[in-house]
């Protein structure tokens, strides 16, 4: 009887592996994208990139359709990141003061996957790798393999029970890990109390707002006609940079996961235009000059992708 049970279990396991075909893997990804936003949890995660390691304490509550998150960066300079939905406010200790910065809509860990997976489906193929244990939790390991060489490969560890993203890593074409972020410890919360949703105040320091960015959407005569396959323009903002007479335009592109920024500013007297490329860990930079404008493209994508975007920029007549 027990032998029959064992055999039955093995057959069921083999079958379950088979069923882990494309569609059900995408279902797992969909669950992973939703879980990070809809579950209540608290934990400690670590971010690795090259020699950089940062521990972050996270608390996340989903209440009445709104998400509240607090991230406290535990290493290096004190930094607290609060978000409610797409609105993000950062309390950033800088020397003798605390700078309050505002951001919007970033997919912060563990909510790294977009809820709309359609663009990812076009650009990546999923492959089931196996089971693993992360932060004391059982996880399914799934690779997101790019369909071309215009983006990096990702590996996702998704909680087998709750679907929460437990860990994610980014790899180059050769399979070297470029960047990794994952929980060391995580637990679900029963409470809906929001008393943790406040910064730790340092009474000895002044608090100042950072005012250098205009986050309103702008549009101008800048066009990038042939973006690398799968990339779409998702935003355009204007940065007011101290010491510059003209604002810097920042156009943001994404394939649903990777993101690339294009910066455009007029080359003015006294400014040294730059031309060339640079690799900083997983980040690639490509600079060029076009019609008296400095173009700089930056992204966590292969060098080829930033170069291709830079070379496509033109100005409408």
């Amino acid at each position: 009887m027990s032998l029959r049970f064992v055999i039955g279990t093995l057959v069921a396991l083999a079958a379950s592996q088979q069923v882990m075909a494309d569609e059900s893997l995408w279902d797992t990804m969909q669950k992973t994208a939703a879980a990070a936003r809809e579950l209540n949890y608290q934990g400690l995660f670590v971010y690795h990139n090259g020699a950089i390691i940062r521990s972050v304490q996270i608390t996340h509550i989903y209440e009445n359709g709104r998400e509240f998150t607090r991230n406290v960066v535990l290493d290096g300079r004190p930094r607290e990141v609060f978000s409610e939905g797409d609105d993000i406010v950062i309390f950033n200790a800088k020397n003798d003061k605390i700078v309050i910065e505002k951001r919007r809509g970033q997919n912060l860990f563990p909510a790294m996957l977009p809820t709309q997976l359609s663009s990812l489906k076009q650009n990546y193929t999923l492959k089931f790798v196996g089971q693993a244990r992360i932060a004391g939790r059982p996880a399914q390991v799934i690779d997101m393999i790019p369909n071309d060489n215009l983006r990096y490969q990702y590996r996702v560890w998704s909680d087998s029970e709750y679907g929460l993203l437990l860990k994610m890593s980014m790899m180059d074409m050769q399979g070297h890990t470029l960047e990794q972020i994952g929980f060391n410890q995580v637990s679900l919360l029963q409470t809906r109390n929001l008393d943790w949703f406040q910064p730790k105040i340092d009474a000895s320091k002044p608090y100042v707002m950072d005012d250098t960015t205009d986050l309103t959407h702008v549009d101008d005569n800048l066009i990038v006609p042939n973006l690398p396959a799968g990339y779409k323009k998702i935003d355009q903002i204007r940065l007011r940079v101290p010491g510059r007479t003209a604002p810097v335009e920042q156009v943001i592109f994404s394939d649903g996961l990777a993101s690339v920024s294009l910066f455009v500013e007029p080359v003015i007297k006294g400014m040294q235009p730059r031309v060339g490329k640079k690799t900083m860990g997983s980040t690639n930079v490509y600079a060029n000059v076009l019609n008296g404008y400095q173009l700089v493209v930056v992204g966590e994508v292969p060098a080829q992708t930033v170069e291709q975007i830079a070379q496509q920029v033109s100005f409408k007549k």
């Binding site: 950089i52 809509g105 970033q106 960047e179 903002i237 940065l239 920024s261 980040t283 930079v285 700089v296």
Partner: peptide, 24 residues
């Protein structure tokens, strides 16, 4: 100067885990 562009990218583009450490 180039680093400033990288910082701005990490500040304002989505999906940037480097965002936690850009400052440091």
């Amino acid at each position: 100067e180039t680093d400033q562009y990288v910082v701005a990218h990490h500040n304002y583009a989505p999906n940037s885990a480097t965002y936690y450490i850009q400052d440091v």
